Amino acid sequence: MVASDCTEAVMGWGMQPMCRRVHLRARSPAAERTVTESRRKRVDRGTPDEAEHGIQKWTGQRRMLCLLPMKESDVLPAGSSNDLRLAVSAAQAAGAVICERFHAEASTVHRKDGKGEVTETDLAAEAAIFDVLSGSDHGILSEEAGGTHENADLWIIDPVDGTTNFSRRLSLCAVSIGLRLGGQLALGVILHPVTGEVYLAERGLGAWKNQQRLHVATTDDPSLAVIYLTHGYAVEHRRRYGEALARFAETSYPRTFGSTAAELSFVAAGAGDGWICSGDELWDFAAGMVLVEEAGGRVSDWRGADWDGQSTFTIVSNGAIHDFLTDTVSDLQPV
Rank of each mutant, 00 (worst) to 15 (best):
S4Y: 00
E8G: 04
G14D: 08
M15G: 13
M18C: 06
M18Y: 09
C19G: 12
C19Y: 11
R21Y: 11
L24E: 08
A31R: 13
A31Y: 07
E32W: 07
T47M: 10
E50R: 05
I55F: 10
K57M: 15
K57Q: 15
K57E: 15
W58A: 01
T59P: 02
R63C: 08
L67I: 07
M70R: 05
S73F: 07
D74K: 11
D74P: 00
D74N: 11
V75G: 01
N82A: 15
D83M: 05
L86M: 15
L86I: 03
Q92G: 04
V97T: 08
I98H: 11
E100F: 08
F102A: 03
H103F: 09
A106K: 15
A106D: 11
V109D: 10
V109S: 07
R111E: 15
R111T: 11
R111F: 12
D113R: 13
E120Q: 14
T121I: 12
A124G: 05
A125M: 06
A128V: 06
F130S: 07
D131W: 04
D131P: 01
V132M: 07
L133P: 03
S134R: 15
S136R: 01
S136K: 05
S136C: 06
S136A: 08
D137H: 13
S142R: 05
E143W: 01
N151Q: 13
N151S: 15
V160H: 03
T163A: 12
T164H: 15
N165I: 01
N165Q: 08
F166R: 00
L170W: 08
I177H: 02
G178L: 00
G178Y: 02
G178E: 07
L179C: 10
L179I: 02
L181Q: 12
G183T: 08
A186S: 14
E197T: 00
Y199K: 02
A201T: 02
R203K: 15
G204C: 13
G204S: 12
H215R: 10
H215E: 15
V216Q: 01
V216I: 09
P222Y: 09
A225L: 09
T230L: 04
A234F: 09
E236Y: 11
H237A: 06
R240S: 07
R247S: 09
T251M: 13
S252Y: 03
P254S: 14
A261V: 02
A261Q: 03
E263P: 01
A268L: 11
G272V: 08
W275K: 03
C277R: 01
D280K: 08
D280N: 14
E281M: 10
E281C: 03
D284H: 06
A286I: 00
A287W: 02
G288R: 00
L291K: 03
A295G: 10
G297D: 09
R298W: 14
S300W: 04
D301C: 01
Q310N: 11
S311G: 05
T314D: 05
V316Q: 05
S317K: 06
A320W: 05
H322K: 13
F324S: 04
L332Q: 13
Q333D: 10
V335N: 14
